[in-house]
Design a protein around this nucleic acid. Structure first.
Lengths: 125, 125, 125, 125
DNA sequence: GTGGTCTAGACCACC
DNA sequence: GTGGTCTAGACCACA
C-alpha cells in the first residue's frame, strides 16, 4: 500500500489520508480486524507530520470505519467496508464525471480520455 | 460570463479566478486584445477582495496570458489562447486521471465509468 | 532625439522624461531658446499619456531649466544648460559607481564591465 | 545579514527583498538547505508588513531559488545559487550599462568614468 | 477611471 | 511555531 500524500494538491493532506484509508478498506486491502499502520509509521510513509495522521485517524474513527484501542493500535471496524464503500462510491463517481466534463470542455477528445484512462489503468494495476 | 467564486472549495479563490480566466481565454470567450474586467469590477462580481483579483491577474500575467497596462487595464495577450489551452488541457487531464483512479479504487468497474462517461457526454452535448 | 520611456523600469515615466530633457539640455542638443516638443507630440513619441508629459514639463520649469509660455510652447531657458549639467553630472556619476559596485559584487569581472562599456558606447554612438 | 528595506527608493520593498535574498544566495551567505528568516521575523527585521515578505518569498519560490514548506519554513533550493547568480549578473550588467549611458549623456568623458571606476574598485577592494 | 502596492489584522492548515 | 490566504482600507502613478 502506498500512503504517500501530495502536498501540492488542493485537497489537504489529512483528507488525502482519510481517502486513502477509505479506499483501502473499501477495496478489502484492509479487512475488519486488520490493524492500520501506527500513527508514527504512517507519518513516516506519508512524509507527513504525525499530528496530521492523528487527525485523519480521528476522522476515520468518527466515521465509524476504524476504532482506536488505547495503547494497542487502530483497527478496521466490523461495518467499516460498508461505510467506506458507501462514502466513496458516489463521491468518486461524481468527481470522475465532473473531471471528465472539464477535460472535454478544455478541448480533449472523448477518445483521448478513454485512451488515457486505459493507459492509466494499466499503470496503476 | 460568470466570475463567481466558491469560498467553500479547497482551491483558493485566487486560483479559481485564474482557472476561470484561463477557461474563458482558452474557449475564445476572451480573445487577444480584449480587456478583462477591471480589478475592482471583477472583485465586485466575484464577491472577493480586490487584492485577491490583483493576485490572480498578476499570476495570469506571469503565465503570459494577459498583460496589465498601468492605468489602462488588463488585456489578453497575443499568445494567450495557446498558453491557456495548453495549461487547461494538462490540468484537466491530470484531474481526470486522478479522479478515474480514485473511482476505480473505490470499487467502480471500468465499464461503469465508461458507461457513465458516455451518458454524461450526452447530457453535456 | 529619442524620447521613449520604458514603463518596466523602476524610475517612474515622468522622471525618465525629466532626465531625458535634462540630458538633452546638458549636452546642448537643446540650446537656450530652443522649443521643446509640444506636450502632445512628446506624449506621442514617448508613448505616454500627455498628463505625464505635462508633469515632467512642470518639474523642469520649476527646476529653472525650461520656461512655458502660454499658448506658444515650452522653451529652454538661458541658464538651463548650467542647471541641467549641475544636476546631472554628480547624480549620474554616483549612480554609475553604485551600479559598477553592484555588478562587481554580482560576479562580473572588471574587464567584462569595461568591455561591455566599450561595446555599449559604440552602440549608443 | 541586514535585511533592511528603503521605502523611499523607487524599487518597491518586496523587490528589494527579492534582490537582497538573491544577493545572499548568490554570494553563498545562504547555502542550499539553509532556512531563510521566517516570514514574520523577516518582516520585523525589514520593518515591513508580513504580507510584503510573503510576496517576496513567493516570487523567490517561483524563480526556483527557494522552497516554502508548509509549517516548517522557507529553504534555499539545490539549484538556487546558480539561478540567483545568473539573475543577479544579468540585472546588474543591465543597470551598469544604463548608468554608464546616462553618465556619458550627462557629459562625463569615458575616461573619467574609467578612472572613477578604477578608483572605486580600490575603495571596495 | 485604471493597476500596483502597502498596512493592519485575521483565520486556516501544518509542524 | 511555520507559511498561505483573505479582508478592509489606504496611497501612488498613470490615462
Amino acid at each position: 500500500m502506498d500512503w504517500r500524500v501530495d502536498p501540492a494538491r488542493d485537497t489537504p493532506p489529512w483528507r488525502q489520508l482519510v481517502d486513502s484509508v477509505l479506499d483501502a478498506v473499501a477495496s478489502a486491502e484492509l479487512a475488519p480486524g486488520d490493524q492500520l499502520p501506527s500513527v508514527r509509521q504512517m507519518a513516516a510513509e506519508a512524509l507527513v507530520n504525525h499530528n496530521t495522521v492523528a487527525r485523519a485517524y480521528r476522522d476515520l474513527e468518527q466515521l465509524g470505519v476504524v476504532r482506536g484501542e488505547n495503547g494497542r493500535g487502530v483497527f478496521v471496524q466490523a461495518g467499516g467496508p460498508d461505510v467506506a464503500r458507501a462514502l466513496r462510491r458516489d463521491e468518486t463517481l461524481d468527481a470522475f464525471l465532473r473531471a471528465a466534463a472539464e477535460a472535454l470542455r478544455a478541448g480533449h477528445a472523448l477518445d483521448d480520455l478513454l485512451a488515457a484512462l486505459a493507459q492509466g489503468r494499466r499503470l496503476s494495476a
